[in-house]
Amino acid sequence: MVGRGVFGMIELVQVSKTFNAGQPNEYTAVREVSFSIEPGRVTALRGPSGSGKTTLLGLIGGLTRPSSGRVRLDGRDISALPERFLTELRRATFGFVFQQFQLIRGLSVLENVMLPATPTGRPYTEVRARALQLLADFDLAGRAEAKAQWLSGGEAQRVAIARALINDPKVILADEPTAHLDSVLSRQILAIFADLRAQGRSVILSSHDPLVFEFGLVERVVEIRDGQVTA
């Protein structure tokens, strides 16, 4: 497991992100944001929808590059890295849990969970065993062969987390993890995040759900409004 906790220091320095630059529909989602995130903790980006939380998560996880500014991981500037290295980061260092789950329809739960391991070239049996173990951990053992589109919201969210964990990443990025879940399921998911934290992983989530903040899991809150950090 990750354990050692010293890796995964994330710093954002004067980061801006502008979409459709130079076009009439140009808009700036993130404006000169600077903050840092300690490794091994649970950090929440809080703000109303449209405030730029999701874009920030994407910038942190290397899904997109900043228009200006720097994103550093353990002191290394990742915003200027070639595509190949960003891919490597997304594969090995970060695990993503998307708001819409983003499971691939038509594939089984097991296949979906194993997907991020394919480019690593790890032995199939090993990956499969780990995927089944993760599914068992999340009470999904009986659903391994079910098609992704047959799942309930709570199941889909847990499958998405299992998928994010298949390559054993140091940092879990979760976008509005409770958005589609009722309170019971939301608490279940947050408990899972607490476990991940206990394993020494960083958890970075975006949310504006009070339940998340009342749960007592979040150690640090970054307030976002209109693409800027307010607290």
């Binding site: 899904l63 595509e83 190949r84 891919t87 490597e88 997304r90 594969r91 090995a92 993503f96 998307f98 983003q102 691939i104 329809r105 997907l115 991020p116 394919t118 480019p119 998928r163 994010a164 390559n167």
Partner: peptide, 18 residues
């Protein structure tokens, strides 16, 4: 749908070549 799937694959760590 296919476009979205390619996006998912890339997001979870597949590179363009994969």
């Amino acid at each position: 749908e296919e476009r979205r799937e390619i996006g998912i694959l890339k997001a979870v760590g597949w590179d363009t070549g994969d």
